[in-house]
C-alpha cells in the first residue's frame, strides 16, 4: 500500500477558496453563516462543518505588506496524538497515511481536541461528536486525489507518493528559497507545506511552530495510564502481602475495670 503526502505550496496559493468549496461539496458539509471580521478570513476558523480553510495573514516585512494564504486542514500525523488519546478507536491511522474518523464510533469525549498539536478536530454540541478532514479516504483508496487537491487551480495543492512529494517539497523550497513545514523529523506528517522565503511558522496564524506529540499527552497516556493499573495492582498486592505477613490488625480488649 502506497503512503501518500498532500503538499501545500503556500507560495502558490491565490486564496480562491476552491479547496474549501470542494471539501464541503464532496463531504456534504453545510455552509456556515459568517460575518465580516475585518480581513479576508472567512469562515473565521475550522469547525465541525468546515474541515479545511485558507488562512489569510497580513504580515509586514521591511515596511512592505506580504499577504500569505495557507491552506489549513488536518496534517495527518504519522503518529497522531488524536489517535493515541481516542478511547473508542473512532480515530484511526491508515496505511496510506490518512487519519480517518468514524462518526459512528465517536462519543464526543473531546480528548482529540485536547490532544491534537494543530487544533484540528472540532466538536459539535448538537451532534455530540467531532469532525475533521479524512484526506478524502474514500477517494484516495480509489485512485483519486482528495477533493481539495482536485479543485486547486494554481498547483498549490498536490497529492502523491510520499517520497515523490517530499522530494518535490524540498526542491520547491530550494527554488523559492523557502522552508519545508513541519520540519520535525521526529514528528512526520502526511501533509507538508512549503512556506515562501522569509516566512516562518511563527509568522502565521494558527500554525504550531514546533509540532510534536504534546508532553501532557505523553504524560497522560505513556505514564499515568499504565501507572493506573500498576498502582492499583501494587496497592492490592501490598495489602495481600500485609495480610499474609503481618496479619489482620486485631482488636485488643482492655481488661474490665482497667482504664
Amino acid at each position: 500500500m502506497a503512503e501518500y503526502i498532500k503538499l501545500v505550496d503556500v507560495s502558490r496559493c491565490a486564496g480562491c477558496r476552491g479547496c474549501q468549496v470542494a471539501c464541503k461539496q464532496w463531504n456534504e458539509l453545510p455552509a456556515e453563516k459568517t460575518g465580516f471580521t475585518g480581513s479576508y478570513q472567512n469562515p473565521p476558523d475550522l469547525s465541525f462543518d468546515t474541515w479545511n480553510l485558507i488562512r489569510y495573514d497580513e504580515i509586514e516585512q521591511d515596511g512592505k505588506l506580504r499577504w500569505i494564504m495557507r491552506h489549513d486542514a488536518c496534517m495527518h500525523c504519522d503518529h497522531p496524538a488524536c489517535v493515541k488519546v481516542c478511547p473508542t478507536g473512532a480515530l484511526a491511522k491508515t496505511d496510506e497515511g490518512a487519519v480517518i474518523h468514524d462518526p459512528k464510533l465517536c462519543i464526543g469525549c473531546k480528548a482529540c481536541t485536547a490532544g491534537c498539536p494543530f487544533d484540528v478536530p472540532r466538536y459539535s454540541k448538537a451532534a455530540d461528536k467531532i469532525a475533521k478532514c479524512t484526506l478524502c479516504y474514500s477517494r484516495i483508496t480509489n485512485g483519486r486525489t482528495p477533493a481539495c487537491v482536485m479543485a486547486c487551480p494554481t498547483g498549490c495543492l498536490s497529492f502523491g507518493n510520499k517520497d515523490e512529494m517530499m522530494e518535490k517539497a524540498i526542491k520547491r523550497a530550494e527554488t523559492i528559497n523557502g522552508t519545508v513545514y513541519p520540519n520535525n523529523p521526529k514528528y512526520p506528517t502526511h501533509v507538508v507545506c512549503v512556506f515562501p522565503n522569509n516566512i516562518k511558522a511563527s509568522d502565521l496564524s494558527h500554525t504550531n511552530p514546533h509540532p510534536s506529540m504534546p508532553l501532557l499527552v505523553l504524560l497522560w497516556k505513556n505514564l499515568l495510564k499504565p501507572f493506573t493499573l500498576l498502582g492499583i495492582g501494587a496497592v492490592a498486592g501490598g495489602a495481600a502481602l500485609h495480610y499474609l505477613i503481618k496479619g489482620p490488625h486485631e482488636v485488643h480488649e482492655k481488661k474490665e475495670g482497667g482504664e
Binding site: 480528548a111 481536541t113 485536547a114 504534546p214 499527552v217 497522560w220 499515568l224
Partner: peptide, 10 residues
C-alpha cells in the same frame, strides 16, 4: 483541555 485530561487521569 490537555491539562484537564492529564490531571483527570492523575
Amino acid at each position: 483541555a490537555r491539562w484537564a485530561f492529564m490531571l483527570h487521569a492523575l
